[in-house]
Design a protein around this nucleic acid. Sequence first.
DNA 1: ATTCTTGCAAACTATTTGCAGAACA
DNA 2: TGTTCTGCAAATAGTTTGCAAGAAT
Lengths: 129, 129
Amino acid sequence: MVEAPRNTRQRRAVVAILEDLDGFASAQEIHDILKKRGESVGLSTVYRSLQVLADAAEVDALRNDDGEVLYRQCSAGHHHHLVCRSCGRTVEIEGPSVERWADKIADENGFRDVAHTLEIFGTCASCAS
Amino acid sequence: MVEAPRNTRQRRAVVAILEDLDGFASAQEIHDILKKRGESVGLSTVYRSLQVLADAAEVDALRNDDGEVLYRQCSAGHHHHLVCRSCGRTVEIEGPSVERWADKIADENGFRDVAHTLEIFGTCASCAS
DNA sequence: ATTCTTGCAAACTATTTGCAGAACA
DNA sequence: TGTTCTGCAAATAGTTTGCAAGAAT
């Protein structure tokens, strides 16, 4: 059987940040926030914690245009995000029709084991004003 | 008025590769192919050429999960891709319904200047067998 | 006591940039 | 001829990893 990860101060601190945050944040941002709060955690430990969480599907990971990986605590199950490109605030969205459409397109072209990525970006109301 | 880029052997070589290729390729892959063909071009030149082409919207760029940027010569206009995760072969797809759906979702949440990314991945028929 | 985790520094990967010399217009 | 382009090497940015010391079970 698989061992559960140990319950360390560092791991708890990273999870706490993710719970506080509204939107996506990079590993480096999380590391900075921890430093500011005085709950310093090594950068590599932040990376490792996020990897573990992502593997366990407890956080979602996506890559921005700069090649940074952004993490966010998310509800379970397959869904997509509407992300504010200015403040990073995110809204979880579902789109059954999109899922069906993607599967159909893939099937029509003879593709198997289909997966897809979909993110919507925009400027949210409070950032636009 | 904007100057056109100069017509150099290197630039032509990169474009030629993109025309030959079926699917997406990374800058490094393109660099390797050029080396194998004996038409060696410096890696930085490959990167610079691809940047210019991408800025001119003559190629599409997308990032894979490993953080590499992949390039492909594409038809103009907004569209998406169905990509084989094994051989890289791609099919351009359109989805008016998806575009509309994305815009609607964003609007409902008060987001402006909406853009979206959508890629479908799978294993194509010939790679599955 | 044993095993997992941390933190630092060094390693890696993909990409970008400074600069001197070469190539185009 | 005057600029732009190229290629090399060095610099960056984000992320990963080796290893000795520290913490959790």
